[in-house]
Design a protein around this nucleic acid. Structure first.
Lengths: 189, 189
DNA sequence: AATCTAAACTAACAGTTGTTAGTTTGATAA
DNA sequence: TTATCAAACTAACAACTGTTAGTTTAGATT
């Protein structure tokens, strides 16, 4: 039977190169060279370059969707839910920092699955926004434009992929706690 | 004499397309088509595709460098300096949101000027970090890992280009104030 | 020993890429 | 009117792109 782990190697290698130069700038020959084989050989394992990108992005998008679904349905208060969202991003990004680069920067090169991806993203942002709005209503969160709060937190979380791989400053749990403190309580003494 | 504003039109058009699809995915024929001319005609005004990218990125990077230089030398306290940095990002991004996409996502495609760009970026981050560290020493800022504070604020500011163009929610001054409040004081009531 | 098969290979394709060379156009200045 | 010239054009290039077809290799199974 076909060894699925060779396919995974290709996806992993592609993901690494996509982070470095972006999807469009990486050629099939680049990916093959990195693995020590010829470009044509890749097609014994994958269908197309486009398929690689789709695999990377959609699987990550689903992880986020499933994660926030659980948080949304939990009984916690709003601040607690925000902390869970922060931990979710730290966890997924720690596991696959390279893939997060594609999710953030190359989603527009999806073709058949572009619309589906956008739906997942819109839903995710809606769920997130809803948690913030409920927090303001419950007097847990400062009365302020929910979109600016959403944007501010989400931007930081979406950029984690750039920082987490750097000289493994911290373990993921400590990072999630520190981030929660800064994003929720601010930095002013 | 050569009309410099035609060159500016090309750079502006390219910047818009670079934001949409990234530098590598945009062809000279794309840029020309958007302007209603042929690709070869672009070369009456610009030297190369690479030159366009360099112009976009280096001019923005210099704006940030000059901005933080002034803030660094001012007599304000640390919190005030942070507010000035936030206002600087809002101002530059409001003026050229499309260009910020290239600065954030396509800097790795710089060639001759890559090293210079990286120097500017490293210096900018060092100045920013130094302001945070002084703030902690002065008891203005919570004792916490300065790199996480830096990362958290800078990620939000670097993502502004994605949000500012959206349905002009706010005028820049109000946005800068709201952002300062959230980033500095947090969101917890 | 013979067969099978996953996974590599070589060779080639049709289309696209950034760019150059040389030419035409049309408005302005002499 | 004529000359000038910025800025468009057509045509072409060599290199590179994703992908396919057909072949070889080498280890495992019969």
């Amino acid at each position: 039977m076909k060894q699925e782990n060779r396919k995974d190697e290709i996806i992993q290698t592609a993901t690494k190169l996509f982070k470095k130069k972006g999807y469009s700038a990486v050629t099939m020959r680049d990916i093959a060279k990195e693995m020590g084989i010829k470009a044509a050989s890749l097609y014994n394992h994958i269908n197309s370059k486009q398929d690689i990108l789709t695999t990377i992005i959609i699987s990550l998008a689903k992880e986020y969707t499933e994660g926030i679904e659980i948080i949304k349905l939990s009984e916690n208060n709003s601040i607690e839910k925000l902390k869970q969202i922060i931990a979710l991003h730290v966890k997924i990004t720690t596991q696959n920092a390279n893939g997060m680069a594609s999710l953030n920067n190359d989603w527009m090169h999806l073709e058949e699955q572009l619309e589906y991806y956008l739906m997942l993203r819109t839903n995710y942002e809606s769920d997130f926004r809803e948690i913030i709005i409920r927090g303001i209503e419950n007097n847990e969160i400062t009365k302020s434009n929910p979109d600016i709060i959403l944007f501010s937190i989400l931007s930081t979380l979406r950029s984690l992929y750039l920082w987490i791989p750097k000289k493994d400053i911290l373990n993921p749990n400590k990072l999630a706690l520190d981030l929660s403190s800064i994003l929720i309580n601010g930095i002013k003494k």
